[in-house]
């Protein structure tokens, strides 16, 4: 069959456009990294990476850019949020995949979807309405602490709820990829359902579970608006969960307005974005890699 010339040209055009788009996608991380590095390099040429990462001294007007307190804030909030989210997600994922009847799952699916779709600014508003007063008036007094409520723990709780749908979805998928026959094999050896979950399913799913948490962690690390709204934003190395914090994304978001008026400030903020990008990419890479290996093994 001969192909008409018009058809031929259209085909050529489609193929070329498809290739351009693919190339764009594959190059995007490189472009992102390069773009950020390009801006941050000004700062890096004056200071060593080590002093930038581990100095507590943050005085933009004096050209002192030490990211230590921001990095530490980010770590506190991220790790704390994962600590809250992980057990809840794991328990719920096991329940939904192993015990729950299918109508419970049908009910929970939209719940997870909607939670995942709620914009981060709404989580922030909710944090201000519910979590911040809850901490100021009820939780902090339990520990004899006086606080406005705008604290690391508030950020961590809001963040934990935000990443629950994300982590839970991955965990459900991880447990669902385990073949039913493995469960049946364990059951027919006289193990109870719970023993099967504990000794067989959990072990089989372990790499997948770790990856899910890793992905959750990197999602939490980069989250901006919701955390920024409830975390207090005070430049200080945090010493406890009832103190305000100032994570990296909040630093960028809060200061973009004035960054052009102070020399090097824009370079410092791009440096913060570069740190975020690199950390998140590494975490994502490790987790995704592990999860692919996990799926291949099954």
């Amino acid at each position: 069959m001969s192909i008409k010339p018009g058809r031929n040209i259209r085909n050529r055009f489609h193929n070329i456009w498809m290739l351009i788009c693919i190339l764009l996608i594959v190059l995007m991380p490189v472009i992102l990294a390069f773009g950020l590095y390009f801006k941050a390099s000004l700062l890096l040429s004056d200071n060593s990476v080590f002093s930038l990462l581990f100095s507590k001294d943050w005085q933009p007007s004096k050209q002192n850019f030490g990211f230590y307190s921001f990095i530490l804030s980010s770590l506190w909030i991220t790790i704390l949020s994962l600590a809250i989210c992980a057990p809840v997600c794991l328990l719920s994922a096991i329940y939904l995949t192993q015990y729950a009847r299918s109508n419970v799952l049908k009910l929970m699916h939209p719940v997870i979807d909607i939670l995942a779709g709620i914009p981060s600014v709404i989580y922030g508003v909710w944090g201000i309405i519910v979590i911040v007063p809850l901490i100021a008036n009820h939780i902090a007094p339990l520990f004899d602490v006086e606080t406005s409520g705008y604290t690391i723990i508030a950020g961590a709780i809001v963040l934990a709820i935000m990443i629950i749908p994300f982590v839970l979805n991955i965990l459900i998928e991880v447990f669902n990829t385990i073949p039913e026959q493995l469960t049946e094999a364990s059951l027919s050896l006289g193990a109870s359902k719970w023993e099967t979950i504990k000794f067989v399913l959990f072990r089989k799913a372990f790499p997948g579970i770790i990856s899910a948490f890793g992905l959750g962690l990197s999602r939490a690390f980069g989250e901006t608006i919701a955390v920024l709204m409830v975390v207090g934003n005070v430049v200080k190395v945090p010493k406890g969960i009832f103190q305000p914090g100032y994570p990296l994304p909040a630093l960028i978001a809060n200061n973009y307005g004035e960054m052009m008026s102070i020399p090097m400030y824009d370079s410092a903020l791009m440096m913060a974005a570069l740190i975020l990008f690199v950390v998140v990419l590494l975490f994502n890479f490790a987790s995704r890699f592990a999860i692919t290996r996990f799926e291949l093994r099954i």
Binding site: Q181, L182, E184, A185, S188, L189, G190, V200, R203
Partner: peptide, 25 residues
């Protein structure tokens, strides 16, 4: 269930060592 050993279409070894597979039950 302990009174019956089950062999399925494909082998599904438990995610543990050879020894522990046999010792599991």
């Amino acid at each position: 269930r302990k009174k019956m050993g089950l062999l399925s279409q494909r082998p599904y070894p438990l995610p543990m060592s050879i020894y522990d597979n046999v010792a599991y039950g």
